[in-house]
Amino acid sequence: MTEPVATSNGQRMNGAAGHPSLKAETRGLSFFYGEKAALREVNLPVHERRATALIGPSGCGKSTLLRCFNRMHDLYPDHRYAGEIRLYPDDINLLAPETDPIEARLRIGMVFQKPNPFPKSVFENIAYGLRLRGLRDKTEIAERVERALHDAALWDEVKDRLEDSAYALSGGQQQRLCIARALATEPELLLFDEPTSALDPLATASIEALIGRLKSQVTALIVTHNLQQATRVAEFAAFMYLGELLEFGPTEALFNAPSQKRTEDYLAGRFG
């Protein structure tokens, strides 16, 4: 039992030539806080090994949508989902009652707005996710920690301070540590919730470059406030407004020729 994590990197072709296969999709997804609908009938495809950006004005529901994928809402009272989120290739509904939210979180990684390393050493921060998955073998854990740090472009900066507290790192380093923490678990889908909004421009650039490089291994779903960031890192973009998905398409097409008036206004900075 060296790798209890269900990882699937198999391509699933679905006809349309040149288009990658689907990693996940939401079908008629609605979400309610108490009586208030925060998401309405969202149908969003997430393409495998591509980055999809969720954009839209604040309060449009993009973070709410992101947090449906790993069932983070289940941690708080008074929530209700309707519709489905299907995860491929094994085609399970993440929102089904028989799907444990913990299963969703073990298979899907998340990086938060503000870096949130644990009060542990750099090494233990990354090893923690592996231990949660039942890994006990010390050398394997060490290997996977190192690989994750390489993948997150952090290894060279921290290789001599693996036992130092994670809080000794800079903000940008902490965020890359959080990315490494998620990468180490080999997530089938990686959620980013405005991963650079708390960082300075240099750190932002390095995180963006990192996400760009990661796309050969992971499928990413990125909430961002920063439209340039969406064009820089994402192949696909989804524009959300008042809890609805108004427009979805390849990023370039969506930015250059939005089909909806609202998308055009938002991209032109007429509201935000």
């Binding site: 209890p4 994590v5 444990d100 299963e103």
Partner: peptide, 16 residues
Amino acid sequence: MTDRARLKARIQRAKQ
């Protein structure tokens, strides 16, 4: 699928 079964067993143990 066996991967998923193993994952579920692990969740069960943690929940126990």
